Each structure stands twice: as C-alpha cells, then as structure tokens.
Simulated scan of single mutants.
Amino acid sequence: MSLANAAAVLHWLKRDRRDVAVGELSTAMGWPKSSSSRLLKDMARLGLLERDEATRRYRAGLLMLELGRQYSAGEPLLEAADAELQEITRQTGYSTGISMLDGTDIVVLRSRPGTHPLRVVTPPGTRGPAAANSTGRVLLARLPDDEIRRRFTPFPAPPRPNAPGDVADLMARVQKARVLGFDESNDESLAGLCGISVAIGEQSHGLGYAPYIAFSAAQLEPGERRRLAAMLVDMAARLSERFGDVRPAPPLQRRAHG
C-alpha cells in the first residue's frame, strides 16, 4: 500500500463524503479498479477504514476517530477554553464549541449542545468553509493578507447568499474581525445557523483555536448578541494573559463591549 495513496483517500473522504465505493474512488483518482479495491481493503485491514458489508462502502475507521481524540486531548489552552465555554453554556443555554483552521476549511474539535429548544449541535470532526464561518474568519485574521488571498484564489462558491462572495468581501470581513476582536456569522454556511467567535492561541501553537457560541438565527436580538460577543472577548482576554497569546483581542474593544 502506498502511503501517499492512502493519504489521498483520507483527504478525499474528508471533503463532505461519509463513505466511498471502489468504483467511485477509481473514477475520482484515475486509478485502476483493481488497485483501488486492494488499497481500500488494506486500509480497512489496518484500521484506517472500515467496510459496511451490506453496502460494500468504506468509511473512516475507529483508529482515525481515536487519533482525532488524541490530537486535541490534554492541551492546556484547549482544556482551559473548553472549561470557560462550559460555564458560558451553563449561564446562557446556548451551544458552544471550539474549531481550528485547516487550509480553507474549519474543523470542529469540541462541541457542547445548549439547553434551548432550538439548539445547534455540530459534532466534532465536522468541516465547514472557513470564509463562511465566524470561526474561520477570526483565525484567518491572524494570517497575513497575502496568505489569505493565496488560499482563496480561486475563490470557492459561497454556500449561502449571506456568505462572502469574493476575496474582497472576505478581506473586508476579516479586517472587521481584527478591529473588533470577534466575528459573527449569520445564515452563511448552513440555513438559519449563526455564530459568534474569537481566536485564542499561544506563541508555540501557531494560529490556535476559535471558541464559538452557536444559535439559531431566530433566537437572538442585537443586544443579546452584543452580550455574548462581550463574554467571548473577555474570555479571550483572560486566556491570552494566562497563556501568552501574541495577538489578543484589542483592549479598547474589550472595554467597549464590557
């Protein structure tokens, strides 16, 4: 089994695909059907994939799930942010979570459901477009402008009408996030889904993480949204002082929303 080919399969699966059949993989990759079948069987034997005997389709195996849990387990900054979000969920009843940036996507690392009837739940491992999520934009805001433009050229098709329509629109929203110290998305990646996010990180951790509060578009008035944004900005300030974030939220904006 070629390690490069196995990695190519995993990268292909992570792009909004839950499973794959031998013929689909062969067509997508341009590989012979026999080679595709052999590779999938080898990956299943090693625990990278598992096969549904009824459908004969392959999906990510238990080993990948275990590795995903280990990837973020025990990091002090992540655990501290998760503890703060647990308290925010307790106080407000809204769903919270933490995402990280991967290229032009965001990936959910932690997710906690709220207690409101209209609760928003995004399971860990879920991927989404960074340009159309507040979590993605606050993390992109920590990159140089040239790097953002490079990643989003060509610009992907917006998933919803409210999402950024081109690089210029994305850059304007990223710059706003830099000024405010937080970002808000509204019906951009999924219908009716809204979120407010901040970015946290350590000098040794690169871009870091994006803690967020998620809710339905029908749930919150502007005043309540400002209150939630202030809670996240204050949380980011506390964590940046504790862990030495080199790019904390702007102090003037923290006072303005406090």
Rank of each mutant, 00 (worst) to 15 (best):
P144I: 02
R178Q: 10
D169W: 00
T153E: 10
A130D: 06
D146M: 05
T115K: 12
A157E: 15
P161D: 06
P123T: 07
N133T: 15
A141R: 06
N162F: 08
R142V: 12
N162V: 04
P129C: 02
F152Q: 13
R173N: 03
F182D: 00
G181F: 06
E184H: 13
V179F: 13
R178Y: 04
T135W: 00
R150D: 15
H116Y: 10
V174E: 05
P156W: 12
T115I: 04
P159E: 07
L180T: 05
E184V: 07
K176R: 11
K176Y: 05
L143E: 09
R127Y: 11
T153D: 15
T126R: 04
N133Q: 15
T115Q: 13
E147I: 01
F152C: 14
A141V: 11
P129D: 04
E147W: 00
P123K: 09
R160H: 11
G128S: 09
T126I: 04
A131C: 06
R151L: 13
V179E: 14
P154V: 09
P164W: 02
P158R: 09
N133G: 03
F155N: 05
D146N: 06
A157L: 15
V167S: 00
R119Y: 08
V121Q: 07
G128Y: 14
L143G: 04
I148P: 14
I148E: 10
V174F: 05
G125Y: 12
P164R: 00
E147N: 03
G125H: 14
R160L: 14
R119F: 14
P164F: 14
V179K: 08
D166R: 12
P158F: 13
I148S: 12
P156R: 13
G165F: 02
D145V: 15
T115V: 11
A177L: 10
P154T: 02
A131R: 01
A132V: 01
R150E: 10
V121M: 09
A172S: 11
F155H: 05
A132K: 05
A177Y: 13
P164M: 10
P161S: 06
R150C: 10
G136M: 01
L139E: 07
N162P: 01
A132F: 05
V174W: 08
G165W: 03
A132H: 07
L180W: 06
N162M: 14
R149P: 00
N162C: 03
V167F: 00
D169P: 05
A163F: 07
T115C: 07
T122R: 01
T122K: 05
L180A: 10
V167L: 03
A177N: 11
T153L: 03
H116E: 00
R173Q: 07
T122V: 14
F152L: 12
Q175H: 13
P117R: 08
K176P: 01
K176G: 02
L140S: 04
D169M: 01
D146F: 06
R178W: 04
V138Y: 08
R173W: 15
V174G: 04
L143Y: 01
D183G: 06
G165K: 14
R127E: 01
L118M: 09
S134D: 00
P123R: 11
T153P: 07
T126H: 06
A172N: 02
S134N: 14
L139W: 03
S134A: 09
P156E: 10
D183F: 12
A131K: 00
T115G: 14
T153A: 03
K176V: 11
R160T: 05
P117C: 06
P123E: 12
T122L: 15
R149V: 15
E147V: 14
